[in-house]
């Protein structure tokens, strides 16, 4: 078990390094392709309006303690009252918005593009790795692992006697897939920070659900305990000045 395998240097030169380089390049390529494919459609006026309302409600929430109680209450009523408050969405309308989103072909198209730009390169790379590099022991992890990791790290080699820390080329591909995320966020900037898992989550939620986020904002506005900060300001000013004097 413990004896070391001797790996050919050709494996390093023709499997390990090319695989990693290709993974990096494909990541960069994917970034630019998805940037090109991002359609710049005109934003829907209604969605834009709702987004602005949410931003205003958030501003009110974060600045709540800097205005007198009366003004705060007036603004809160403006946002959350049940008749014509900006954040209040009637029940039936909420359903409509959902249905509308599903029927809007542009939205679905955009989603498709996003998912395709994620899926196609990944499956292509995987197929490429499978085709060229299947069955190599490509690398060795410099720390010991238990037998449970065998399926994960030695995907593609059916040998039960090889030490678990040896990694097959296919598993090296997976290691790269997860580990290069940090590198991408460094070389491609923050736009790439939204990684695949987050995209997956978005897919589940099928886009931005305006009605729900409006309702969330409304609830959080409703439960704010208002406490006007300015009456205590003189005290604070005094403290600060005293500290300066000392």
């Amino acid at each position: 078990m413990a004896e070391d395998l001797v790996l050919d240097t050709a494996i390093r030169d023709w499997v390990l390094i090319p695989l990693s380089v290709v993974m990096v390049l494909i990541g960069v390529l994917r970034y630019f392709v998805s940037k090109l494919m991002r359609s710049s459609q005109l934003p829907d006026a209604k969605a834009l309006k709702e987004g602005q309302v949410i931003i205003r409600a958030r501003n009110l929430k974060s600045g709540a303690n800097f205005i007198p109680s009366k003004s705060f209450r007036a603004r809160r009523v403006y946002f959350t009252n049940e008749e014509n408050g900006l954040l209040y969405v009637p029940k039936d309308q909420a359903q409509n918005a959902q249905a509308q989103m599903f029927s809007d072909p542009n939205m679905a198209m955009d989603m498709m593009k996003k998912n395709l730009s994620m899926l196609i390169p990944q499956s292509l790379t995987f197929a490429w790795v499978n085709f060229f590099f299947s069955g190599f022991v490509a690398a060795k992890i410099p720390f010991p692992l238990t037998q449970r990791f065998r399926a994960m790290l030695q995907n593609g080699i059916d040998l039960s006697t090889v030490d678990v820390s040896y990694v097959s080329s296919r598993s090296w591909y997976f290691l790269n897939l997860f580990g290069l995320r940090g590198l991408f966020s460094l070389i491609l900037g923050e736009e790439n920070a939204m990684d695949d898992t987050q995209r997956m989550m978005q897919m589940g939620g099928f886009g931005f659900d305006a009605a729900r986020s409006l309702a969330v904002e409304k609830d959080s506005l409703d439960i704010i305990q208002h406490d006007w900060a300015l009456p205590k300001m003189e005290q604070r000013a005094e403290e600060v000045l005293r500290k300066l004097l000392r």
């Binding site: 790996l7 240097t9 390093r12 690398a139 410099p142 290691l175």
Partner: peptide
Amino acid sequence: LGGLMSFVLFWTFAYDIVHIF
């Protein structure tokens, strides 16, 4: 712990290139 995955990857990579082959 956020950088651990990147660390392990590059650790393995450099270790393999320098020491294994």
